[in-house]
Design a protein around this nucleic acid. Structure first.
Lengths: 195, 195
DNA sequence: ATACAAAACTAATCATCATTAGTTTGTGGG
DNA sequence: CCCACAAACTAATGATGATTAGTTTTGTAT
C-alpha cells in the first residue's frame, strides 16, 4: 500500500506497482498477488482492470518505447547540427529516466517475456530508435565533430551508459539534475581524461 | 544438444547450458527440463550432478564474480600509474566478456534470484570490486591524469558500458579483438569528440 | 431510500515445474 | 563373465500462481 489512491486511477496504480515489482523481482518472479497487495486489494480483483499479467508488462514497455521514438522523431526534424541533436538525445534519456526509472529498467531485460506480437512491436520500436541514433552519430562524424571510430560500438557504448542511468539515480538520490546532465555529457563527449 | 560430450564433464555441460538459457529466458523463465534437453538428457537426471536449480545460478555467478575480484587484486598490486591500471581493467572486462559472454549477462540481472546467503556473497564481491575500481579512479584524478568530475558517476558510466559489451560482441561477431580494445579505450578515455 | 454497475472478495480450477522415489542401464575393474 | 556404481529413466508429489466462477460490497444517480 504505497500508492496514493486519490491521485491515480486503479489502472495507473497497477501499472506503477507492476513497474516497481517487475524491476525488483523480474516479471516471472512477481506474482499478481504481490502487485495487488501493493495497492491494497486481492489478486483476482486485478482482473476488473486488466486482461492479463502480460498486459501490464506490454503496456509499460510499449508506451515507454513509443515515447522514446516520438521524441526521437521530434529531435531528428529540427535544423540543428548533428552534434546538437546528440546532446538533446542525452538530455532526453535523462528526462525520461527521471520520469520513469522503473520502466527504464524493464526496457533492458524484461521485454524478453512479452508475447510474440508485442515483442515484435517492441523490438521494432527499439531498432528504429537505435538506427536513427546511429544515423545522427554518422552525420556528426560527417560534419567533422565526432571521431571516425567503429560507429556501431560508439553508439552501443553511449546507449549502454544512458540506459543504465536509472540505477545510478536510484542509488544517489540527492543529485542535482543539471549537474548530472553536465557530467554525463562531458564524460560521453570528452571522455574521462583531463584536458 | 549443442554441447560436445567429449570435451566437458556433465557438470560443465550443465553450467554452459544453464548460462545460455538463463541468459536467453531468464532464471525463472528457464526450466530444468530445458537445460537437460540442451545436453540430451531428461530433467530429473540433472540431480545426479547438481543439488538444485539455484546451485547452477550461484556457481555461475560466484565463480565469475570471484574471478573479477581476484584479477582486480592482481592489478591493484602492480606498481603502475593509476591510469595504466584503469587501462588494464578495461582489458580485463573485454577478456572475461569474450571468455564467458552468457555469464556476463547474468551478472547484470539474474543475481536477484540467488538465495539469501549467496546473494550476500555476490553483492559483497561486486561492491568490493566497484569500490576498488573507484579507488583507482580517484587515484588517477589525484595523479592529474583524469578530470575531477563526480566520481561515482564516472565509475558508473565506465562500468555500465564495459558490463554491457557482451551484447555488442554477440551481435557483431566478426570483430577484431585488438580493434575492439582500442576503440573502447579511446571512447572511455577521450570521449566521442574529434580532437 | 433503491437499484444498477463497478469493483472487491472467496473459493475453485488447471497448468506448470522443481524435486523425490524407485527402477533400469551401461561400463570399467576384477 | 560378473559386480558395483554412476548416471539415466519414468512416474509420482507438492507447491505455486495465473486465471475463472460465483457472490458480496460499495458508491452513485434517480
Amino acid at each position: 500500500m504505497d500508492i496514493d489512491k486519490g491521485l491515480y486511477s486503479r489502472k495507473q496504480q497497477i501499472l506503477i506497482a507492476g513497474a516497481k515489482l517487475f524491476h525488483k523481482k523480474g516479471f516471472k518472479g512477481t506474482t499478481l498477488q504481490a502487485i495487488a497487495q501493493e495497492i491494497g486489494i486481492e489478486g483476482p480483483s486485478l482482473y476488473n482492470h486488466i486482461k492479463s499479467k502480460n498486459e501490464i508488462l506490454s503496456t509499460l514497455l510499449l508506451s515507454n518505447a513509443q515515447e522514446f521514438y516520438d521524441r526521437m522523431l521530434e529531435i531528428k526534424s529540427t535544423s540543428e547540427t548533428a552534434l546538437q541533436k546528440l546532446e538533446r538525445l542525452i538530455s532526453l534519456h535523462i528526462e525520461l529516466t527521471l520520469k520513469n526509472p522503473n520502466a527504464m529498467a524493464l526496457m533492458l531485460n524484461e521485454w524478453v517475456h512479452l508475447d510474440a506480437e508485442d515483442k515484435t512491436k517492441y523490438v521494432n520500436l527499439r531498432d528504429s530508435y537505435d538506427n536513427d541514433f546511429q544515423g545522427i552519430l554518422a552525420q556528426s562524424i560527417a560534419e567533422g565533430d565526432v571521431a571516425d571510430l567503429e560507429i556501431d560500438l560508439m553508439r552501443f557504448m553511449m546507449l549502454s551508459s544512458l540506459r543504465s542511468l536509472y540505477a545510478w539515480c536510484a542509488k544517489y538520490k540527492n543529485f542535482n539534475r543539471v549537474e548530472l546532465e553536465v557530467t554525463v555529457k562531458s564524460v560521453i563527449l570528452n571522455g574521462i581524461l583531463k584536458k
